[in-house]
């Protein structure tokens, strides 16, 4: 069944959209990530214009993180005090991200920056995940019961001024790195159409030493707030949010996530992390391919007029 996307001005098969949302939702439930970093590239590779894909996926990420954040909220897994600082900085970052998005789109370099951005972030995070997970698996098979290296309670970040006490996270830390992380995630997330959870969680754990029981919930809340703000900013600034498109992705995504989460609980942590790492690396390589290999058609055409005609 074909459905007409009023903003993209394209006619696509609705089952294809829901199916893709479902597949990515399944992975996001399985790995506990937002899924935007997989969905946006998949849509771009299948021919959806990059601006519409990026802007509409932000809506899908809001839906995906809402169900997750709600479930963590019920179990008390959110540090609202910390999230408040992150969101504040994140919204400012998102504002700059969306402005950059529009400027790049006008200059014709949006696709390039999106490809490079994905290559850098997915490439580094993917390598890290694979390296760590494979390392753990190798140690396990060698049966060396070496204790896992627990990150120390203090590092250079804890020496910075303007310290604030975050009771829920049991932290007393400077707000400067907190704001810095929020700003960065907001900027990157709105520019690339990703929630940024897969960058935010490691940053919170390794830089701020946020404990494991609140890190996912807090990160989900931050992603939810930033993506909500980004959706509105994209709607106002570039008018590329397609509500029909976003809704089809949401329906698939939210449903798929439930099945993914059910299966994810049966898998071992390092197995899922290794698998996620390989998928992330594959997407990064696909972007490298599009940047390095001679395109089949070097010419492209773009309408300058913003929004629907």
């Amino acid at each position: 069944m074909q459905v007409y996307l009023p903003i993209a001005e394209l006619s696509v098969n609705i089952f294809f959209l829901i199916g893709m949302g479902g597949a990515v939702g399944f992975l996001s439930g399985l790995f506990g990530v937002g899924g935007g970093f997989l969905l946006t590239p998949l849509l771009i590779f299948t021919g959806i214009p990059a601006p519409v894909a990026v802007a509409s996926v932000t809506g899908q990420v809001v839906a995906a993180s809402t169900s997750g954040a709600l479930s963590y909220y019920r179990h008390g897994g959110i540090d609202f005090h910390l999230a408040m600082y992150l969101v504040f900085a994140g919204v400012i970052g998102a504002f700059f991200g969306v402005s950059t998005f529009s400027a790049l789109r006008g200059a014709g370099q949006l696709d390039l920056v999106i490809s490079l951005g994905y290559l850098i972030f997915l490439g580094s995070i993917g390598s890290l995940l694979v390296y760590e997970a494979v390392g753990t698996l190798v140690r396990r098979t060698k049966n060396k019961n070496r204790p896992l290296k627990v990150p120390g309670k203090h590092n250079w970040v804890h020496g910075l001024p303007l310290r604030v006490r975050f009771k829920r996270s049991n932290l007393y830390v400077s707000i400067l790195p907190v704001l810095g992380i929020g700003l960065f995630i907001g900027f990157v997330g709105s520019l690339l159409g990703i929630g940024g959870g897969f960058i935010l969680v490691p940053a919170l754990v390794y830089i701020l030493r946020v404990p494991g029981n609140v890190v996912i919930g807090t990160s989900l809340l931050q992603v939810l707030a930033i993506m909500a703000a980004t959706t509105i900013l994209h709607a106002v600034n570039s008018q590329t949010v397609d509500i029909v498109f976003a809704l089809s992705l949401m329906v698939g995504g939210v449903t798929g996530a439930q099945f993914g989460a059910a299966i994810g609980q049966k898998m071992r942590g390092e197995q899922t992390r290794a698998l996620l790492g390989f998928i992330v690396l594959a997407v990064a390589l696909r972007f490298a391919y599009s940047l390095l290999v001679t395109p089949s058609d070097p010419f492209s055409i773009t309408a300058i007029t913003l929004g629907a005609g």
Binding site: G59, S67, I243, V254
Partner: peptide, 27 residues
């Protein structure tokens, strides 16, 4: 397409509310 062009702010807010509702419903 008319509301996306003429009332972008309201359109964006509706998109977000729709996403929140879908996410909540899914949960």
């Amino acid at each position: 397409s008319d509301s996306a062009r003429d009332f972008p702010l309201a359109y964006g807010i509706v998109c977000v509310l729709l996403a929140l509702f879908t996410g909540w419903l899914g949960g």
